[in-house]
Design a protein around this nucleic acid. Structure first.
Lengths: 211, 211
DNA sequence: TGGCAATCTTGCATTGACTGCAAAAATGCA
DNA sequence: TGCATTTTTGCAGTCAATGCAAGATTGCCA
């Protein structure tokens, strides 16, 4: 089973082969998924293409779905790091904008883009995809709270801010996928955030003057 | 298979028995799920308890998960209706608040409350649960857009408003589940929304005066 | 270099969700 | 009562996922 490094030494043949096998499975799976769809691809198809036994697949990935989402953990980790890196005196709003923009830009070229459509047309994957956003939101909320010194009273506030921002990220990702990116990711992100804050202010004012 | 009424006449013996069977399955499933967990309950356990054949289960529900989430469609439909019922001259912000509050209040006594914990501790259900919110959000966005006469330029705006409000609903539902409801649902909803709009205004102002 | 111990890979068997199909049972109606 | 329609069921089969133990590989050291 998956065990880790014995010492902190360099990667031995064992580790290397294992990583290579993992990549071979991932590659084979993705190719087949994109080519003939997620459900229409069986584990056996994948293991055959990757030339490993059917049983071994589960030694590398806990489930078929995980192959698709494995790479996405990286995004959440980067975002956390980006948040933590913002100066403490910066407002939460400024910090998320900067952190998300930076993380998105740093991640925009990854295979994830091609996956969007696959996920979108596969119900089981769609559910898992949403879960990913939920986890991201929770992590973001924690990171934001930490910046505030962990004050428990700030928690609901940061939860809501996280929900708003991740919501915007989700909507933004959708818009991005729909139209061919005629602008740079930077400009796109900037635009999205500008719109978002403007809307927030409007909605807020609207509620303020209401009743 | 599931066919509908032949004419608009009253419910015959056939329809009635079918509905009863469906309820029996649902009841048996829920009892077992809550009692021994989702994964630990097999379809056979359920059908045995409900006294139908294993095969028949799938004549009533497309999957094990659907039993859990079937009732939730009702919420989305009610919310849509509530939005549509708001006067057209009302602002979007005022309309969602009123509609959501009314719908939540009308739905708060349903079995859903007991399910929260079950869903929370079952990964597969958690994913599906998030998908539910996503769908709700989309429907809400459509309903809001419709109120605006369907102007395509308003779409992203309404998508974001929907994301924000559903985000607040999600966070609110979580808070509600955590602490014993010491206040009425009405007051709780009012409070949540008041906080939300206040936060929006603050975040908006903060962004406005920034840079 | 040979051999041992740790680790990986694989085959085999099993469970459980889900589907298709056709026979059998129940129901509605003339 | 008899027949057409609908429902329920049994059965066979596919596929994901898991446990287990035998077989192969690898790292290491005497």
């Amino acid at each position: 089973m998956a065990k880790n490094k014995r010492a902190e030494t360099t990667e031995g043949r064992r580790e290397r082969k294992r990583r290579q096998t993992r990549e071979r499975i991932e590659q084979a799976a993705m190719t087949l998924f994109l080519q003939r769809g997620f459900e229409a691809t069986t584990i056996e198809d994948i293991t055959e293409a990757a030339d490993v036994s059917k049983r071994s697949f589960f030694d590398y990935f806990p489930s078929k779905e995980e192959v698709v989402f494995a790479w996405q953990d990286a995004f959440a980790d980067r975002l956390m790091a980006a948040i933590a890196a913002r100066p403490a005196k910066e407002t939460s709003v400024a910090a998320v904008e900067a952190a998300i923009t930076a993380t998105v830009i740093a991640s925009v070229d990854e295979p994830g883009l091609a996956l969007g459509e696959l996920i979108h047309r596969t119900p089981a994957l769609k559910a898992r995809d949403q879960l990913k956003y939920a986890k991201l939101e929770q992590k973001l909320a924690e990171a934001l709270l930490l910046r505030k010194g962990g004050d428990p009273l700030e928690r609901p506030r940061m939860r809501v801010l996280a929900a708003i921002v991740i919501g915007a990220l989700r909507v933004g990702a959708e818009l991005w996928q729909q139209r061919p990116p005629s602008v740079s990711p930077q400009d796109f992100a900037r635009e999205i955030f500008a719109d978002l804050w403007k809307m927030l202010a409007e909605f807020g004012d609207e509620a303020k003057t209401r009743r």
